[in-house]
Amino acid sequence: MDQFWREVEGSAERRLLEALGCGLAGLGLVLALVLRCVQLPYGRYSSSYFGPGLPARAAWFVQELPALLVPLVLISGAARLHHSPNRVLLGLFLMHYLHRALIFPFLIRGGKPTPLITFLLAFIFCLCNGYLQGRSLSNYAEYPPDWLQHPCFIAGFAGWLIGMVINIHSDHILRSLRKPGETGYKIPKGGMFEYVTGANFFGEILEWFGFALACCSIESAGFAMCTLFILASRARQHHEWYLEKFEDYPKSRKIVIPFLY
């Protein structure tokens, strides 16, 4: 395996990674436009048209796992991981997916089946992004020795940390809406839900924009933009659904960006 990566390493792969980073941003924009016409089939919007349903916990665990495992595989023989900034930045990425793959799925209460197509798309995305971020940080990204004291890293790390906390807290609020045995939907309250419908999405968007600022790379910026486009579309879908279903839904709440959108 080490021999394989030594053979592919070089300027051509570096250009490929940068192209994939730009491609992620473009993909996010295209999907955002598509999702204005087609509902993303997951959760309350699941449909049999997108394939048979898979158990929610198992689907989430498997689809997120590549983003955790692929970078770990790439660590072997990595050229840049003896530098502290690269190790720390890769650690931030892995911490997110450690939670999303190994903790979050087992906190799901019930959960509607995940359509096969939705699962496959998420799996492929995590596989490709795991390679993109992992390979970039482990072999190509270069930082000065004092990068961890640089304002970009400090501000980016703060954004990443605050975003992750908001994301986890918002997911907890959503899980706590129903008491054991209850069904149906309720209006989320508390935390960032007082400001936006997609509080969990806002947290993840902030997290990855913080990560992009801390990394200052095309690959991380492309990932952040893709996250923004897709999650903003999902938040808009939720917002319209809540407004239609609940007459008393707070009209002052924005969709996903507090006070702005």
Score class of each variant (00 low, 15 high):
241 W>H: 14
216 C>H: 10
39 Q>Y: 11
119 F>D: 04
50 F>G: 00
251 K>G: 14
71 P>Y: 09
46 S>V: 00
230 I>L: 10
251 K>H: 14
146 D>G: 05
17 L>Y: 00
188 P>T: 00
140 Y>L: 12
64 E>V: 00
139 N>I: 02
15 R>S: 13
50 F>C: 01
121 L>F: 13
95 M>D: 08
121 L>G: 11
147 W>R: 03
189 K>S: 15
89 L>Y: 13
159 G>C: 05
74 L>C: 00
72 L>T: 08
72 L>I: 12
69 L>T: 15
210 G>K: 07
119 F>W: 10
133 Q>A: 09
181 G>L: 11
188 P>M: 00
81 L>T: 02
123 F>K: 01
94 L>Y: 09
245 K>G: 09
64 E>T: 00
60 W>N: 05
201 F>M: 10
201 F>C: 05
4 F>T: 12
64 E>M: 00
188 P>W: 01
8 V>T: 15
228 L>Q: 08
51 G>D: 01
68 L>R: 06
13 E>D: 12
177 L>G: 12
39 Q>L: 13
192 M>S: 12
106 F>C: 06
146 D>Y: 05
206 L>Q: 06
195 Y>R: 09
145 P>R: 05
33 L>K: 06
172 H>K: 13
107 L>D: 03
63 Q>K: 01
90 L>G: 07
206 L>V: 14
184 G>H: 14
147 W>Q: 03
163 G>L: 07
174 L>I: 12
221 A>K: 05
100 R>G: 01
92 L>K: 03
35 L>N: 08
202 F>Y: 06
75 I>D: 08
259 F>A: 04
34 V>N: 05
171 D>P: 01
222 G>S: 13
231 L>V: 07
177 L>E: 12
227 T>V: 09
15 R>L: 14
143 Y>H: 13
134 G>M: 03
155 A>I: 14
132 L>S: 09
82 H>P: 09
140 Y>D: 12
232 A>V: 00
7 E>A: 15
7 E>H: 13
147 W>E: 04
126 C>Q: 06
124 I>A: 15
252 S>M: 09
118 T>H: 07
168 I>W: 06
53 G>A: 04
101 A>Q: 00
198 G>S: 09
222 G>Q: 09
14 R>C: 01
5 W>S: 11
156 G>V: 00
189 K>H: 13
223 F>D: 04
259 F>L: 08
143 Y>T: 12
215 C>S: 15
150 H>D: 13
111 G>T: 12
68 L>Y: 04
139 N>W: 07
8 V>G: 06
123 F>L: 15
233 S>M: 07
89 L>F: 15
148 L>F: 08
184 G>D: 14
3 Q>S: 15
210 G>T: 11
165 V>M: 08
171 D>Q: 03
258 P>A: 14
241 W>K: 08
175 R>C: 04
5 W>F: 15
208 W>A: 01
174 L>Q: 11
168 I>F: 07
213 L>Y: 04
25 A>S: 14
242 Y>S: 07
